[in-house]
Design a protein around this nucleic acid. Structure first.
Length: 896
RNA sequence: AGGCACGUAUGUCAAUGGUAGACGGCUUCCCUUACAAGGAAGAGGUUGGGGGUUCGAAUCCCUCCGUGCCUACCA
């Protein structure tokens, strides 16, 4: 048989995906059962500028595992892919390209620029969709969406107009987060706070009447040029008599009042605060409370304005800071400068320090929308977060403290706000220009220049991608979606907004569950980031270890943070190789046999112990898989599979059945053994498929009998593929506790013999006689029935089974379950002292455990209060241990 | 500042209040015709420290130490 000894992932990764995609296996239409239950996921849309990183790979793995699992279970399954238009980053990227050509976007003009972005998108955007194909993601590409598509844009306009008409969107002058580099406003969530060492400057403002004055502390001295008051706490004794006084603002000659405001913390700084309503969010609020003037001294480029005085106008904000400080020093008004660490707001994308500015922007009122989301949680406990702790609380706490959302952006790339202005400044909001004209009674309208925050369109994703506002079949079928899989850092930015918009426009939750994945950190426990250059490229990992190995490794991470450890992927690569070789063995010995699910059902007493045992293990494993996956316990699922395949199937079952399977003579018995082996393997491959789609498909295709009859009946008519077979169901009637107990006894026997052989330095190839005894007749029968296997796996020359152990004194011995014993005669080879020591060590272990259990049983409270079942369990264990211990003691004495 | 996590074998991580496990690494032996990316056997733990609740604690509570994350404010 021409199967290589080593698994080459590349081979398998090359052709299967294209076939799956072309045949339409990812589309829900492949399911021809009209009654099928629906399972749907929308992808958290990656940026059109983005390329695959570890976080995507992790989330995509989880989503694909769920999708493939549900599909195999017969659900009508949709995993809908797509991207968002990433307003700022895309605009920056294209602007940078233009700059290389010596052109600015303003040279080009808005329309040409937007055209250019589309061109960029079609040529080099969306790298990630190719990479997702490599990942094996079973998304329905025929439904791929982009937030700037015409239908999704229409949804955005509809939502905007509707919210505006209801008064939930308004336009107004507010203090906002302004990025002087990107020249746009940002929402609170797009601002990142970084702790940073800085200075605290103490500036003295003299009183107008020449008597005294006030010292204020500030980290931003340049803003003093825009001060319109100084505030003190009304309860602060030190300043009580100053309230209402007038100060002379240095460098400007402006007269400003001292006002009283509870906001001021008397403990901080001097207890007196300079108030700059135009350039600080808190001062802005205070300014409103005290009707203070707003003097704008910093412009959108972060340069000082004319209002800052002719000495300062045009200066950069940091230059102005130096100049202000220098001049205060010269005037003797700089009291002191302290080192001071504080956190500073930066633009999340370009890291430029944010300038709070008063600006005319569009806002979305959050109070009513927020209540929709909170009500949903109270009434239906949806969405259900997994893990529930701490995310449910994080989510609701955040909603409760929500502030209005700045939704306009000063960009060209994005959804232009559907608002128009007449010549005399009248505002018309409508879904289209035509409608706006009709409403305004004129066609001389100018559209608002701003676009909407990218997250505004992302918030509509679960229904806009399904066709809303049209009442499409897809919308009816797939909304609400089943689960959202995402990283925790966008619970606020995205998840909460989807819930609010979903409730508002669909009247229903957008998804039942939210599975929050952990984070893959670098090997030192740091977050992977572009700036730190510590990211691990998933594509490289795919190249080195294979997609399947990477996927199952990522699935094993679950929802806790994990440090990246290449060795782990390596061990899953080895696992893939193990699967490959196990299948290789089965195929090399498959002549005359084929996969036959019925062969496992025929079960019963005529089957050998190891067959009953593997069927029991297989069906328990299957049940465990359903349980793990239904609770999003990916880690548990992976462990279950790994253990079953490697330990149960490879280490024991294949070895136990090897003699039958590799028999020279083509007997019925051989064929049946081969059939069972192939069939168990086939089911194991199905169990593995959602995690390791490529290797399982590759091997499945080669199995004799792996054909259309194995397809899930909902996929009748499809050409054979493992991805459309039925995920195995646990046949509980094949779970056989007796077989498991008996097999365990055989395994223990073999292991004890191997242990003796190893410790007594018996050569691996050398065959030795084995004497077994058991007072229990049933156990003797079990051993007798497995004598071939015992002989083979323990490398015995001869096996004898009796009710009593008739071994020569010069034997190595071990005590087994149920009073059974095993001995290997080692005349001339055995060192009696060494053997006694070996047995004493064993005895010590038993003794330690026995005394622990005895103490437990000796405690009257335990016997009284613990559940009866537990007490019985402990009694059973101690009986076994004491029996072994007694026998061992006897054995040791006999050696004296 | 407040809130929330986490601390388990040398490493990375598991373990509904009921026998602390897996993988990697390590030691010894073996290229035994599925697999050396393998097989067999083994060593390795006062579950961060201290206290408490409980018949019983890695798990629940308190406290200390250490490490992360989030939210708000920081004039």
């Amino acid at each position: 048989m021409d199967i290589p000894k080593q698994y080459d992932p590349r081979e398998a990764e090359q052709h299967h995906y294209a076939r799956w995609e072309q045949e339409g296996y990812f589309a829900p239409e492949i399911n021809c059962d009209p009654q099928a239950t629906v399972f749907s996921i929308v992808i958290p849309p990656p940026n059109v500028t983005g390329s695959l990183h570890m976080g995507h790979a992790l989330q995509h793995t989880m989503m694909d595992v769920l999708t493939r699992y549900k599909r195999m279970c017969g659900f009508r399954t949709l995993w809908l892919p797509g991207m968002d238009h990433a307003g700022i980053s895309t605009q920056l990227m294209v602007s940078r390209e233009l700059k290389k050509e010596g052109v600015s976007r303003h040279d080009l003009g808005r329309a040409k620029f937007v055209e250019r972005v589309w061109k960029w998108k079609s040529e080099s955007g969306g790298q990630i969709t190719k990479q997702m194909r490599r990942e094996g993601a079973s998304v329905d590409w025929s439904r791929e969406k982009f937030t700037m598509d015409e239908d999704l844009s229409r949804a955005v306009r509809e939502v905007f107009v509707s919210l505006y008409e209801e008064g939930l969107i308004y336009r107004g002058n507010r203090i906002v987060n302004w990025c002087p580099n990107d020249q746009t406003v940002l929402s609170d969530l797009e601002v990142q706070k970084d702790p940073q060492p800085g200075k605290l400057y103490y500036l003295r403002y003299p009183a107008k009447n020449g008597k005294g004055g006030v010292t204020v502390a500030t980290t931003r001295p340049e803003t003093m040029l825009g001060d319109t008051a100084v505030a003190v706490n009304p309860n602060d004794e030190r300043y009580r008599n100053l309230i209402g006084a007038t100060l002379l603002l240095p460098l400007t000659g402006r007269e400003i009042p001292v006002v009283a405001d509870e906001f001021v913390d008397p403990q901080f700084g001097t207890g007196a605060v300079k108030v700059t309503p135009a350039h600080d969010p808190n001062d802005y609020e205070m300014g409103l409370r005290h009707s203070l003037a707003q003097v704008v001294v910093i412009d959108p480029q972060a340069r000082m304005t004319e209002a800052a005085g002719s000495d300062f106008a045009g200066l950069d904000r940091y230059k102005a800071r130096q100049k202000v400080v220098a001049e205060f020093e010269e005037l003797g008004l700089l009291e002191k400068v302290d080192d001071y660490e504080f956190s500073i707001s930066k633009c999340e994308r370009c890291k430029t320090v944010i300038e709070p500015l008063i600006s005319l922007q569009w806002f979305c009122r959050m109070d009513k929308l927020r209540d929709l989301a909170l009500d949903l949680m109270v009434r239906e406990k949806k969405p259900h977060f997994v893990p529930e702790l701490p995310y449910e609380k994080v989510y609701t706490d955040w909603l409760e403290n929500l502030r209005d959302w700045t939704i306009s952006r000063q960009l060209w790339w994005g959804h232009q706000i559907p608002a128009w202005y007449t010549k005399d400044g009248k505002l018309v909001v409508a879904c289209s220009y035509e409608e706006a004209c009709a409403r305004a009674g004129t066609d001389e309208l100018t559209q608002d220049q701003d676009v909407l925050d990218t997250w505004f369109s992302s918030a509509l994703w679960p229904f806009s991608t399904l066709g809303w506002p049209e009442e499409t079949e897809d919308l009816k079928t797939f909304y609400p979606t089943s689960v959202l899989v995402t990283a925790r850092d966008i619970i606020f930015l995205w998840v909460s907004r989807m819930v609010m918009m979903g409730m508002k426009f669909m009247g229903q939750r957008p998804f039942d569950d939210v599975f929050v994945t952990g984070t893959i950190l670098d090997k030192d426990g740091q977050r992977m980031s572009k700036t730190k250059m510590n990211g691990v490229d998933p594509l490289e990992v795919f190249d080195n270890y294979g997609v399947d190995a990477t996927r199952i490794m990522l699935a094993s991470v679950g929802s806790t943070d994990t440090r990246w450890n290449e060795k782990q992927v390596e061990s899953y690569r080895n696992f893939a190789n193990k699967i490959w070789n196990a299948a290789r063995f089965c195929l090399m010995n498959s002549e005359g046999a084929a996969v036959e699910p019925e062969s496992l059902r025929a079960g019963g007493q005529e089957l050998a112990l190891h067959d009953r045992w593997i069927l029991s293990r297989l069906n328990k494993t299957t049940g465990d898989m359903h349980e793990a996956l239904s609770g999003y316990q990916f880690h548990e699922a992976v462990r279950t599979l790994y253990h079953f395949f490697w330990n149960d199937f490879c280490d024991w079952y294949i070895e136990l059945t090897k003699t039958e399977v590799t028999a020279e003579e083509a007997t019925t018995r051989r064929t049946e053994a081969r059939t069972r082996l192939l069939t168990v393997l086939e089911q194991a491959l199905r169990l593995l498929h959602p995690f390791m789609p490529y290797i399982t498909e590759e091997l499945w295709q080669r199995l004799p009998g792996a054909d259309a009859k194995l397809l899930n009946k909902t996929y009748a008519g499809a050409s054979p593929t493992i991805m459309l077979t039925a995920y195995p169901l646990s046949a509980t009637e094949l779970i056989d506790e007796e077989a498991e107990w008996e097999m365990q006894a055989v395994i223990e026997l073999i292991s004890r013999v191997r242990n003796i052989r190893s410790e007594m330095n018996i050569k691996p190839g050398e065959r030795v006689p084995i004497l077994i005894s058991s007072p229990d007749e049933k156990l003797r029968r079990v051993f007798s029935a497995s004598v071939d296997q015992i002989s083979r796996l323990a490398r015995a020359s001869d096996v004898s089974i009796n009710d009593q152990l008739n071994a020569p004194r010069a034997s190595a011995r071990a005590v087994l379950v149920g009073g059974a014993e095993v001995a290997i005669p080692l005349e001339g080879l055995i060192d009696f002292e060494q053997e006694r020591q070996r047995l004493r060590k064993e005895q010590d272990k038993l003794q330690a455990e026995a005394s622990k259990l005895e103490a437990q049983l000796g405690n009257a409270n335990f016997v009284e209060r613990a559940p009866e079942e537990k007490v019985k369990e402990v009694r059973a264990r101690i009986t076994d241990i004491l029996q072994r211990s007694t026998q061992l003691k006897q054995t040791i004495e006999n050696l004296q």
